[in-house]
């Protein structure tokens, strides 16, 4: 049996789909920004000698890395209800993505920080650099170079995983596609367009990231 494609209805709904794509980008960018901020704190806590700091950070990182993202979203959406916290679909997906991003990025940041030989600290001191100069000119530029690619990958992961919003009725690209296709039952057409949009978004992100890295690092990656 052959399937007959009808694309008209999908193109009529393109503005709504684009709106969904915008929400997808919105939630993933926000989840990265908040995730980065928390990851910096967690990385510092994890490297601390005091267990009251390092233990909670380790627990956070290991739970984030060893449970499915869908579990985190269900936990935020259904599980927190037991504490009287009722999140909207957007807030639930955002907090789940922040939780996972922070967990993965903590290890990225810690790895980036520890990859810089300790001798560089003493070398810069013996050259008479202040500690601001040390971090500004020596440590942070090298660190940023090493965490740049893992961070880009994490961002792409966030975009792809925000599609789980479909399961809690969020209005990002997947959820919006689901809602629109249910009005017309052109399921295949709608999800094909959504797939193309995801592909283009991730390619665009990776392409811009490569462009930025060329400008900033001038090929010395």
């Amino acid at each position: 049996m052959e399937y007959e494609f009808h694309w008209n209805i999908v193109f009529q709904k393109l503005p709504q789909l684009l709106n969904g794509a915008f929400v997808t980008l919105h939630v993933s960018v926000l989840s990265m920004l908040i995730g980065i901020a928390i990851a910096v704190l967690l990385a510092i806590a994890k490297m601390s000698d005091a267990r009251i700091f390092s233990l909670p950070a380790t627990v956070w990182v290991e739970i984030a890395r060893n449970t499915p993202a869908l579990f985190q979203i269900y936990m935020a959406y259904f599980g927190l209800g037991a504490f009287g916290i009722h999140l909207s679909p957007y807030a639930a997906v955002l907090s789940a993505l922040v939780f996972v991003n922070a967990g993965y990025l903590t290890e990225t940041f810690r790895g980036g920080f520890q990859s810089i030989p300790k001798t560089q600290y003493s070398a810069s001191k013996s050259l008479g650099m202040s500690s601001t100069q040390l971090y500004r000119y020596i440590i942070l530029p090298q660190m940023f170079r090493r965490i740049y690619h893992p961070m880009t990958n994490q961002f792409v992961w966030s975009i792809l995983m925000s599609s789980l919003g479909i399961l809690v009725g969020m209005n990002e690209l997947s959820g919006e596609t689901q809602r629109l296709q249910s009005l017309s039952f052109r399921t295949l057409e709608f999800f094909i367009v959504a797939a193309v949009m995801y592909f283009l978004i991730t390619k665009f992100v990776l392409f811009s990231a490569a462009l930025i890295s060329q400008k900033v690092f001038k090929g010395e990656l």
């Binding site: 999800f191 797939a195 592909f199």
Partner: peptide, 10 residues
């Protein structure tokens, strides 16, 4: 580059 969930539905 396409979310797994979309691949499954498609």
């Amino acid at each position: 580059s396409v979310p797994l969930i979309i691949q499954l539905i498609l």
